[in-house]
């Protein structure tokens, strides 16, 4: 882009140094937790004077943390299972319908992504109390599915739009029902989009905190809620261990995905 300015070395050096500082700002908070998580001391010291795995054992050895981890993983899986098929069907409806009604359906489905989380949280708190679902896994699942559906619709809609419907008409003319035609012809061509939608839905649920803080409790307390509570009270290095594991998981997923796409 700047090949027309070969002589402006100074400007380029300035741009690079400023840009590197901004990148450092972006990456630093994620990196700092790694050495802290291996610290042997109760104090948050940097650099740590002694190393140990005690914060990892305090995480894996705690019944509360393990229950929260299990809840969050189950919830994230269920969120993906519920929201991706629902969003996929909605995308088909939007694409086939067309016009103003289709735009209305799309807008309705993505509303939760523009409403502040705190509003969904307190509103859902009351609705779930009325339905006697407060503190149940199903209740939190409803909240997480509401947030995951917009994500899945936004990921899937372009893929559904690109799909060539003549193929389905051919399958139909050969006697396949709509269900068979969609599952047999359409689904296999959309595996990559469906997998990325499922992954995004999974991660959005795993990371969701505001709704969980208000509507999850007891045995169904999620990991982010427990992290939030313990962050508000003290800076426990156990959180550093969880953060390191979490970031490791994200890096692994991103690398795996990048490798898959290149293959």
């Amino acid at each position: 882009m700047l090949d027309a300015y070969p002589e402006s070395r100074l400007a380029r050096a300035l741009l690079w140094s400023f840009g590197s500082l901004v990148l450092a700002f972006l990456i630093l908070p994620t990196l700092i937790v790694v050495p802290i998580s291996f610290s042997g001391s109760d104090m948050l010291e940097f650099p740590p004077r002694s190393f140990s795995l005690r914060w990892y054992s305090s995480f894996f050895g705690s019944a509360d943390w393990m229950a929260a981890l299990r809840t969050s993983l189950v919830l994230a899986g269920l969120t993906a299972v519920v929201s991706v098929p629902a969003a996929f069907l909605a995308c088909i409806a939007i694409d086939r319908q067309g016009g103003r009604l289709a735009r209305a359906i799309y807008a309705f489905a993505v509303i939760p992504s523009v409403v502040p989380g705190i509003l969904l949280a307190i509103g859902l708190f009351f609705v779930l109390a009325r339905l006697r679902l407060l503190g149940t896994l199903g209740g939190v699942l409803l909240g997480h599915a509401v947030l995951a559906i917009p994500v899945a619709v936004i990921v899937l809609y372009p893929a559904v739009r690109r799909f060539d419907w003549v193929q389905l008409q051919a399958a139909r003319s050969l006697g396949a029902g709509w269900g068979r035609a969609i599952v047999g012809i359409m689904l296999p061509q959309m595996v990559l989009s469906l997998v990325s939608a499922a992954l995004m839905a999974f991660l959005s649920s795993l990371d969701e905190a505001v709704i969980s803080i208000f509507v999850s409790s007891g045995a169904n307390t999620t990991l982010p809620k427990l992290m939030f509570i313990s962050l508000r009270d003290q800076i426990d290095p156990t959180i550093a261990a969880i953060s390191t594991l979490w970031t490791g998981l994200i890096v692994a997923v991103v690398l795996l995905f990048a490798a898959r796409q290149r293959a």
Partner: peptide, 16 residues
């Protein structure tokens, strides 16, 4: 990477 990292992890990092 930060975009994909949990908000609680990032907040904790800043606290530290």
């Amino acid at each position: 990477l930060p975009l994909w990292t949990s908000i609680l992890v990032r907040t904790y990092g800043w606290l530290v």
